Amino acid sequence: MKSFKKLFTSKPKTHNPESSFKIGGMASLKVLDVIPSPEDDSHKLKKAFQGFGTDEDVIIEILGHRDANQRKKIRETYHQLYNETLIDALKSELSGDFGKAVILWTYDPSERDARLANEALKSKKKGIKHLEIIVEMSCASSPQHVVAVRQAYCTLFDHSIEEDIVASLPPPLRKILVGLVTSYRYDKEVVDTDVANLEADRLHEAIKTKDLAHDDVVFILSTRNFYQLRTTFACYKKKHGNPIDKDIEKSGKGDLESLVRMVILCIDSPEKHFAEVVGTSIIGLGTDEDSLTRAIISRAEIDMMKVKSEYLNIYKSSLDDAVTGDTSGDYRNFLVTLLGGKI
C-alpha cells in the first residue's frame, strides 16, 4: 500500500467552488410570510404568561413559527421590555416534556447544544447513547456551528467541552470525541479519489486489527470534509465488499465500535441517523422523550423533510403519524408544529 504520508500532502483532484456544504433547504419549520415585530411577539408572550393559567397555544403559535434569528430577536426584545429573560419566564410557566421542548427550541442553537452536551457528559448513564449529541454537533453540523458550540460551552460552564470529555470518558472514547469537537473541517466540495482509496484501506486495516482509536482513524474521521469522507466510505464498500459500518459492527459490540459507527452514520447520512433516533425513541415500550425532542428540534430548521423521507424508507410509516400517535397534549402539538403539521 502507498505511504500514509500521501494522505497529508495530496492535492485535491476536484473542486466545485459553487457547491458548499449547506445546512438547510429541507426544513420542516413553517415561518409566516409576514412576521410580527419582536415587540408584538414579546407582548403576546407576556400576556400568555399572565392571568389564570398559561396560554400554551399562543406560545406554540409564536415560537413554533419563528426561525433561530427571529427567536433571538424575541429573546432580546423580551428582556429589554420586561427586565427578565424569556427563558426564565418559560421555565416558571411551563413544565414536563412540553416545557423542556419549548425551552430548548428557544435557546440559541449553539447554546442549546452546549447545554445538552454538558448534560450528557455529566450523565452517569452507561453505554454511549447519551453521547449522541456530541457526535451530532460535530458530524451533522457546519464547522461554524461546532465553533459556536465550543464558545458557548466555555461561556456557560467556565471551562471547555474538551476538558469535560477528557474528565468524563475512558481514553479511546475521549480520543475520538476530542478529535471531532476540535476539528474545523473545510466546508466546500473537495474530493480526492486517490486519498479516498488510500484511507478506505487504512480504515479497513484498523477494523481488521481492532484498532479503531488509532491516530490515523481519528485524523481521517475528524479532519476530512464530509464530501471526502462519503467518497471514502463508498470506496470502502466497493473495495472491501461491505459497508464500513457493517464491518465495524461485525468486529465488535463495545462502546468504541458503537461510537465509531455512530460517527460514520452521522457523516454519511445525517437524515438516516436522525430517522433512527426518532424511531428508536418511539418504537417499543415507552417513549424516550428527550431523544425525540432533540432530534426534531435539531433538524426542524435544517433537513427534517429528508429525515421524514428516510424514516418512511426505514420504518414504512409516517414520522408525523408516529409522533402524533406516541405523544399527547401540548407536547404533541408543539412537535407537530415544528414538523410543519397543523394542530
Results as ranks from 00 to 15, higher is better:
residue 169 L to M: 03
residue 201 D to W: 03
residue 155 T to S: 14
residue 173 L to I: 14
residue 201 D to I: 04
residue 192 D to V: 02
residue 162 E to K: 04
residue 194 D to M: 03
residue 172 P to N: 12
residue 153 Y to K: 03
residue 192 D to W: 02
residue 166 V to N: 09
residue 183 S to N: 10
residue 162 E to I: 05
residue 185 R to V: 09
residue 183 S to W: 14
residue 152 A to D: 12
residue 202 R to T: 13
residue 192 D to E: 12
residue 167 A to W: 00
residue 153 Y to W: 04
residue 152 A to W: 05
residue 197 N to S: 11
residue 198 L to V: 12
residue 158 D to A: 11
residue 177 L to Q: 11
residue 193 T to A: 08
residue 184 Y to Q: 13
residue 167 A to G: 08
residue 195 V to R: 09
residue 182 T to V: 04
residue 178 V to P: 00
residue 160 S to T: 12
residue 187 D to M: 02
residue 203 L to V: 07
residue 167 A to P: 02
residue 152 A to S: 14
residue 168 S to K: 03
residue 175 K to N: 12
residue 181 V to T: 11
residue 164 D to N: 12
residue 178 V to H: 00
residue 179 G to L: 02
residue 154 C to Q: 08
residue 151 Q to I: 11
residue 152 A to Y: 01
residue 202 R to Q: 14
residue 157 F to E: 15
residue 175 K to L: 02
residue 198 L to K: 04
residue 187 D to P: 02
residue 196 A to C: 13
residue 154 C to M: 13
residue 168 S to I: 01
residue 182 T to I: 01
residue 160 S to M: 03
residue 201 D to R: 06
residue 161 I to D: 00
residue 202 R to P: 01
residue 190 V to P: 00
residue 195 V to D: 15
residue 152 A to R: 03
residue 199 E to H: 07
residue 155 T to L: 07
residue 201 D to C: 09
residue 197 N to C: 09
residue 190 V to W: 02
residue 179 G to T: 00
residue 198 L to H: 14
residue 170 P to K: 11
residue 198 L to A: 13
residue 188 K to T: 15
residue 193 T to G: 06
residue 188 K to L: 05
residue 163 E to W: 01
residue 188 K to S: 15
residue 151 Q to E: 13
residue 197 N to W: 13
residue 175 K to M: 06
residue 191 V to N: 04
residue 183 S to E: 15
residue 195 V to I: 04
residue 189 E to K: 09
residue 167 A to L: 05
residue 170 P to C: 06
residue 197 N to P: 03
residue 194 D to Y: 04
residue 194 D to I: 03
residue 162 E to F: 02
residue 202 R to V: 12
residue 188 K to A: 15
residue 160 S to R: 00
residue 155 T to R: 08
residue 186 Y to K: 07
residue 189 E to S: 11
residue 174 R to M: 13
residue 161 I to R: 00
residue 180 L to E: 14
residue 164 D to E: 15
residue 165 I to M: 07
residue 166 V to I: 14
residue 197 N to K: 09
residue 171 P to Y: 07
residue 161 I to C: 14
residue 186 Y to Q: 11
residue 195 V to T: 11
residue 178 V to D: 01
residue 200 A to T: 06
residue 159 H to K: 06
residue 183 S to C: 10
residue 160 S to Q: 02
residue 151 Q to A: 14
residue 191 V to C: 02
residue 184 Y to P: 00
residue 173 L to E: 08
residue 187 D to A: 11
residue 166 V to Y: 01
